[in-house]
Amino acid sequence: MTQHPTAQERRPANDGPKAAARNRAALMAAAREVYAEYGLDAPLSGIARRAGVGQGVLYRHFPDRAALADAVLEENVREVEQAGAAAGANLAGVLGVLTWHLTESAAFIGLLHADRTGDGTDDLHTHALALSERVARSLRGHLTGGHRLAGSDDLMLAVAMVSGAVTGPTREERERRALAAWRLLGVEVGPVRPVGG
Protein backbone atom coordinates (compact mmCIF):
# COMPACT_ATOMS: atom_id res chain seq x y z
CA MET A 1 0.00 0.00 0.00
CA THR A 2 1.32 3.40 -1.01
CA GLN A 3 1.58 5.93 1.72
CA HIS A 4 1.04 9.56 0.69
CA PRO A 5 2.89 12.33 2.51
CA THR A 6 0.81 14.57 4.69
CA ALA A 7 0.49 18.28 3.88
CA GLN A 8 3.16 19.06 6.49
CA GLU A 9 5.60 16.58 4.91
CA ARG A 10 5.06 17.89 1.38
CA ARG A 11 6.01 21.47 1.99
CA PRO A 12 8.88 22.95 3.95
CA ALA A 13 7.85 25.45 6.59
CA ASN A 14 7.33 28.92 5.22
CA ASP A 15 9.79 31.17 7.01
CA GLY A 16 8.39 34.27 5.29
CA PRO A 17 10.62 37.31 5.79
CA LYS A 18 13.37 35.21 7.40
CA ALA A 19 13.67 33.11 4.25
CA ALA A 20 13.71 36.24 2.09
CA ALA A 21 16.53 37.74 4.13
CA ARG A 22 18.46 34.45 4.05
CA ASN A 23 17.98 34.14 0.29
CA ARG A 24 19.14 37.70 -0.32
CA ALA A 25 22.22 37.17 1.84
CA ALA A 26 22.98 33.89 0.03
CA LEU A 27 22.59 35.60 -3.34
CA MET A 28 24.89 38.46 -2.33
CA ALA A 29 27.55 36.04 -1.06
CA ALA A 30 27.29 33.89 -4.19
CA ALA A 31 27.42 36.93 -6.47
CA ARG A 32 30.54 38.22 -4.71
CA GLU A 33 32.25 34.86 -5.22
CA VAL A 34 31.15 34.42 -8.83
CA TYR A 35 31.86 38.04 -9.81
CA ALA A 36 35.25 37.93 -8.06
CA GLU A 37 36.18 34.92 -10.16
CA TYR A 38 34.48 35.62 -13.49
CA GLY A 39 33.68 39.34 -13.55
CA LEU A 40 30.41 41.15 -14.15
CA ASP A 41 29.48 39.10 -17.21
CA ALA A 42 29.08 35.89 -15.19
CA PRO A 43 25.75 34.17 -15.85
CA LEU A 44 23.03 34.93 -13.32
CA SER A 45 21.98 31.29 -13.41
CA GLY A 46 25.38 30.34 -11.95
CA ILE A 47 24.90 32.85 -9.14
CA ALA A 48 21.45 31.48 -8.30
CA ARG A 49 22.79 27.91 -8.40
CA ARG A 50 25.70 28.76 -6.10
CA ALA A 51 23.27 30.47 -3.69
CA GLY A 52 21.07 27.37 -3.69
CA VAL A 53 17.98 29.19 -4.97
CA GLY A 54 16.06 29.32 -8.22
CA GLN A 55 16.41 32.13 -10.74
CA GLY A 56 12.94 33.35 -9.81
CA VAL A 57 14.16 34.04 -6.28
CA LEU A 58 17.15 35.93 -7.69
CA TYR A 59 14.87 38.12 -9.83
CA ARG A 60 12.55 38.79 -6.88
CA HIS A 61 15.47 40.37 -5.04
CA PHE A 62 17.34 41.83 -8.01
CA PRO A 63 15.18 42.65 -11.03
CA ASP A 64 18.13 42.74 -13.43
CA ARG A 65 21.88 42.24 -13.76
CA ALA A 66 22.56 45.91 -12.98
CA ALA A 67 20.72 45.78 -9.66
CA LEU A 68 22.71 42.74 -8.50
CA ALA A 69 26.07 44.13 -9.66
CA ASP A 70 25.30 47.48 -8.06
CA ALA A 71 24.44 45.83 -4.72
CA VAL A 72 27.62 43.74 -4.73
CA LEU A 73 30.02 46.44 -5.90
CA GLU A 74 28.54 49.08 -3.61
CA GLU A 75 30.39 47.45 -0.70
CA ASN A 76 33.75 47.70 -2.50
CA VAL A 77 33.18 51.34 -3.40
CA ARG A 78 31.99 52.21 0.09
CA GLU A 79 35.21 50.81 1.59
CA VAL A 80 37.35 52.93 -0.75
CA GLU A 81 35.25 55.96 0.21
CA GLN A 82 35.63 55.15 3.92
CA ALA A 83 39.39 54.88 3.50
CA GLY A 84 39.43 58.27 1.79
CA ALA A 85 37.26 59.90 4.44
CA ALA A 86 39.15 58.52 7.46
CA ALA A 87 40.99 60.96 9.70
CA GLY A 88 44.57 61.32 8.53
CA ALA A 89 43.87 59.54 5.23
CA ASN A 90 46.36 60.00 2.42
CA LEU A 91 46.57 58.85 -1.19
CA ALA A 92 48.95 55.98 -0.41
CA GLY A 93 46.55 54.55 2.19
CA VAL A 94 43.53 54.85 -0.07
CA LEU A 95 45.46 53.22 -2.92
CA GLY A 96 46.32 50.37 -0.54
CA VAL A 97 42.61 49.72 0.07
CA LEU A 98 41.85 50.09 -3.65
CA THR A 99 44.64 47.65 -4.51
CA TRP A 100 43.31 45.12 -2.00
CA HIS A 101 39.92 45.23 -3.74
CA LEU A 102 41.62 44.86 -7.13
CA THR A 103 43.38 41.69 -5.96
CA GLU A 104 40.13 40.28 -4.56
CA SER A 105 37.65 40.85 -7.36
CA ALA A 106 37.57 40.68 -11.15
CA ALA A 107 34.22 42.48 -10.93
CA PHE A 108 35.83 45.43 -9.17
CA ILE A 109 38.42 45.58 -11.93
CA GLY A 110 35.58 45.56 -14.48
CA LEU A 111 33.93 48.41 -12.60
CA LEU A 112 37.05 50.55 -12.84
CA HIS A 113 37.21 49.94 -16.58
CA ALA A 114 33.57 50.98 -17.03
CA ASP A 115 34.42 54.29 -18.60
CA ARG A 116 36.28 52.48 -21.37
CA THR A 117 33.84 49.65 -22.11
CA GLY A 118 30.34 49.39 -23.47
CA ASP A 119 28.35 52.08 -25.17
CA GLY A 120 26.79 53.57 -22.04
CA THR A 121 23.25 52.65 -22.99
CA ASP A 122 22.59 49.74 -20.65
CA ASP A 123 21.79 49.92 -16.94
CA LEU A 124 24.82 47.89 -15.88
CA HIS A 125 27.18 50.27 -17.66
CA THR A 126 25.39 53.31 -16.23
CA HIS A 127 25.65 51.94 -12.66
CA ALA A 128 29.28 50.96 -13.17
CA LEU A 129 30.13 54.46 -14.39
CA ALA A 130 28.51 56.03 -11.34
CA LEU A 131 30.37 53.72 -8.95
CA SER A 132 33.66 54.23 -10.81
CA GLU A 133 33.26 57.99 -10.51
CA ARG A 134 32.78 57.66 -6.74
CA VAL A 135 36.09 55.76 -6.53
CA ALA A 136 37.79 58.45 -8.62
CA ARG A 137 36.45 61.22 -6.33
CA SER A 138 37.75 59.40 -3.25
CA LEU A 139 41.20 59.18 -4.78
CA ARG A 140 41.28 62.68 -6.30
CA GLY A 141 40.49 64.19 -2.91
CA HIS A 142 44.01 63.22 -1.82
CA LEU A 143 45.96 64.42 -4.85
CA THR A 144 48.14 67.47 -4.46
CA GLY A 145 48.73 69.81 -7.38
CA GLY A 146 52.28 68.59 -7.90
CA HIS A 147 51.51 64.85 -7.76
CA ARG A 148 52.50 62.92 -10.85
CA LEU A 149 48.88 61.72 -11.28
CA ALA A 150 47.30 65.17 -10.90
CA GLY A 151 46.61 65.53 -14.65
CA SER A 152 42.96 65.40 -15.75
CA ASP A 153 42.77 61.69 -16.62
CA ASP A 154 46.11 60.48 -15.26
CA LEU A 155 44.82 59.06 -11.97
CA MET A 156 42.16 56.75 -13.37
CA LEU A 157 44.36 55.83 -16.32
CA ALA A 158 47.01 54.70 -13.81
CA VAL A 159 44.37 52.72 -11.89
CA ALA A 160 43.29 51.06 -15.15
CA MET A 161 46.89 50.23 -16.02
CA VAL A 162 47.53 48.69 -12.61
CA SER A 163 44.27 46.75 -12.70
CA GLY A 164 45.36 45.28 -16.03
CA ALA A 165 48.44 43.89 -14.30
CA VAL A 166 46.39 42.18 -11.59
CA THR A 167 46.58 38.62 -12.85
CA GLY A 168 47.69 35.36 -11.34
CA PRO A 169 46.31 32.24 -9.72
CA THR A 170 46.61 33.45 -6.11
CA ARG A 171 45.73 36.64 -4.30
CA GLU A 172 49.39 36.98 -3.27
CA GLU A 173 50.56 36.83 -6.90
CA ARG A 174 47.95 39.38 -7.94
CA GLU A 175 49.03 41.69 -5.11
CA ARG A 176 52.70 41.30 -6.03
CA ARG A 177 51.95 42.25 -9.64
CA ALA A 178 49.76 45.21 -8.64
CA LEU A 179 52.46 46.61 -6.36
CA ALA A 180 55.07 46.13 -9.09
CA ALA A 181 52.85 48.08 -11.49
CA TRP A 182 52.41 50.94 -9.00
CA ARG A 183 56.19 50.95 -8.45
CA LEU A 184 56.81 51.17 -12.20
CA LEU A 185 54.48 54.17 -12.30
CA GLY A 186 56.41 55.75 -9.43
CA VAL A 187 53.39 55.82 -7.14
CA GLU A 188 53.60 55.07 -3.41
CA VAL A 189 50.99 52.61 -2.10
CA GLY A 190 50.22 51.98 1.55
CA PRO A 191 49.52 48.56 3.09
CA VAL A 192 47.32 46.43 0.86
CA ARG A 193 44.36 45.60 3.10
CA PRO A 194 40.64 46.15 3.48
CA VAL A 195 39.31 49.04 5.54
CA GLY A 196 40.03 48.31 9.18
CA GLY A 197 42.26 45.37 8.20
Rank of each mutant, 00 (worst) to 15 (best):
R134D: 09
R49C: 05
E79V: 05
A51Y: 03
G196K: 08
G168W: 05
V53S: 00
A128F: 03
T99R: 00
M156E: 04
A29C: 01
A42L: 08
L157A: 14
A26N: 12
R10P: 09
A26I: 03
M156Y: 02
P63L: 07
A69P: 00
A128M: 12
H127L: 00
T170E: 10
E133N: 10
L91R: 03
R24C: 04
A25S: 12
A150L: 11
H4T: 10
A42K: 05
I47D: 01
S105P: 00
G146F: 12
T99F: 01
A29H: 05
G39N: 08
M1P: 14
L40A: 04
R50W: 04
D15T: 09
P194N: 14
G186P: 02
A83C: 11
R134L: 04
H127T: 06
L179H: 08
P194W: 08
P43V: 12
V97R: 05
R137F: 15
A107P: 00
T167L: 04
A130T: 13
G197A: 15
A26Y: 05
A20N: 13
D15W: 13
T6P: 10
A128Y: 01
P12R: 09
D115G: 11
V162R: 01
A42R: 03
Y35M: 13
A160H: 04
V72A: 12
K18A: 11
V57H: 02
Q55N: 15
A42C: 09
G93E: 09
S152D: 15
L58F: 06
A89V: 02
S138P: 01
H113L: 08
E75S: 09
H61D: 13
E104T: 11
A36T: 06
V77A: 03
T117V: 13
T103S: 14
A31L: 01
R10K: 12
L185V: 07
G186I: 00
A29N: 06
N23W: 08
D122K: 04
L143M: 10
R78T: 13
L44Y: 03
A29P: 00
P43A: 13
Q55W: 07
M161N: 14
G16M: 04
F108T: 00
R176D: 10
G54M: 12
F62D: 02
P191S: 06
G197N: 08
H101I: 00
A114H: 02
V94N: 01
D15L: 14
R183K: 13
I109H: 03
A83T: 06
G16K: 07
A106E: 13
L131T: 06
G118C: 07
